[in-house]
Nucleic acid binder design. Structure first.
Length: 203
DNA sequence: GGTAAGATCAGC
DNA sequence: CTGATCTTACCT
């Protein structure tokens, strides 16, 4: 059962999610960039930039559930971002889907993103990825391994991943928990958060 | 009941 | 670098 491959720490789960095929609403794509997010203080993978750092609440409850579920949230009041929950049931952890290569339904993705958007930019960036795949806040908590779900994922074997610091986070900014497959123009350019403290701290 | 911060993105 | 826009959490 492929689901068991996600019942591990977020960084390993992130590595296993690269190359996976995510099927959204009439659009499917191969995941080429992800970020790992850990859990609360005192948990196995404390992570100050994770939504679950301060314990369970209304927004992050899905992160504490079983692996293989979809965790969506609204970012900056504008965009929707999608995570795949990892770790065992009861332990918070998730992998943010940052970029993907559209494999089917390009026309639909273009309609959602806007005519004139470059093909390689359709699902570049977590907000754009959700937009292109038609993932919404209402999809929060759905089982990505249930064939009945509106959004599904299939894990594929994959190698050659590289790692670097996460994009946009203001805490634990130097932790190399962003993983991607090199050579894809779909992978977003690295931008450090303007709110992040001086580089090189071990946070 | 008010307010600040934020795992983003596009456009100057 | 900035503004847009909204949800949550945490305070009083």
């Amino acid at each position: 059962m492929a689901l068991a491959y996600l019942a591990v720490d977020p960084v390993r789960a992130a590595r296993r999610l690269l190359g996976a095929v995510i099927a959204g609403r009439a659009v499917s794509a191969v995941v080429v960039e992800v970020e790992a997010y850990g859990g609360p203080v005192g948990g196995p993978w404390p992570d100050a930039s994770s939504h679950s750092y301060r314990g369970p609440n209304l927004r992050n409850s899905v992160m504490y559930g079983p692996p293989g579920r979809l965790y969506t949230y609204r970012s900056h009041g504008i965009h929707v971002c999608a995570n795949v929950v990892c770790g065992t049931d009861g332990v918070a952890g998730a992998v943010l889907l940052r970029a993907a290569v559209i494999k089917a339904g390009v026309e639909t993705a273009v309609l959602r993103r806007g005519v004139g958007v470059a093909t390689t930019a359709l699902a570049r960036g977590p907000g754009n990825l959700c937009s292109a795949l038609g993932i919404t806040l209402d999809d929060n908590g759905i089982d990505l391994f249930n064939p009945e779900s509106a959004v599904r994922i299939r894990l594929r074997k994959c190698s050659g991943a590289v790692a670097g610091p996460r994009v946009g986070v203001s805490k634990a900014a130097d932790r190399p928990w962003r993983l991607w497959l090199p050579g894809y123009p779909e992978v977003s350019a690295y931008r450090r958060s303007p709110r992040a403290p001086t580089p090189g701290r071990s946070d």
